[in-house]
Amino acid sequence: MTSDILKIENLFFAYHTLSGETQAIADLNFSVKKGEFLAIVGPSGCGKSTILSLIAGLLEPEAGGITFYGTDGKKPGIGYMLQRDQLFEWRNIWKNVTLGLEIQNKRTAPNLERVKKMLDAYGLTDFVSKRPSELSGGMRQRAALIRTLALEPEILLLDEPFSALDYQTRLTVSADIGRIIKAEKKTALLITHDLSEAVSLSDRVLVLTNRPAHVKTEFSIHLTRTDDSPLSARKAPEYSDYFNQIWEELSDEENSD
């Protein structure tokens, strides 16, 4: 039995503006196991991105808490991948993927060597001196992932990282990135609107309620698959059952306004 890396208990959060208060999260509880791939789905605007910002420490909870159980008691490193790749056009790919190391003054030889290995493994070595605009959408997303992984985070937060890609690219890139995350043995929290992506990539799917968000239901995903390709996940006999159940939960929630 693997242990928890992250536990959220009775979490509350609201945004305050002059025009009023928006309760985004109310009494949220869930935990994530080390090495688990967790997908989060929910009605739009329900507070999914807010949850990631709270975990990343960009926002402070109003009540309740987030407890981390990192290796040797330290707070685990957290990597956050945003919806759009946000590669900087004024830097080449190499300067982009090492941005995090630059900011944290960690451009040591072993760290840079590791980044080079990742670039090589994910087919970007020939593009290190190119500008982001010279890369395809899928390549850019892989570069953004390497930028995040360069800091060796234990937990990866992914906020709809594939939604800006066209369908074809999206299938291959999401499979690629799923594979990379498994290979690097990271814990991942993926927010997505695409249920097939959620079922085929994750070990567990959380369905959230309307705003203020809390967990409505959760599904543990066990697919009988022949290999780790996205197609084989989609061909698994259990796949459509999971898809339909999650779909029903979600549309039930969306119609309950």
Binding site: L58, L82, Q86, F88, L99, G100, Q104, R147
Partner: peptide, 19 residues
Amino acid sequence: EKQMLIRTLGGKRKDVFCK
């Protein structure tokens, strides 16, 4: 969003400005 990216990489306000 680019400013937020710097913060997710552990950057401070100085980094947001310079980068």
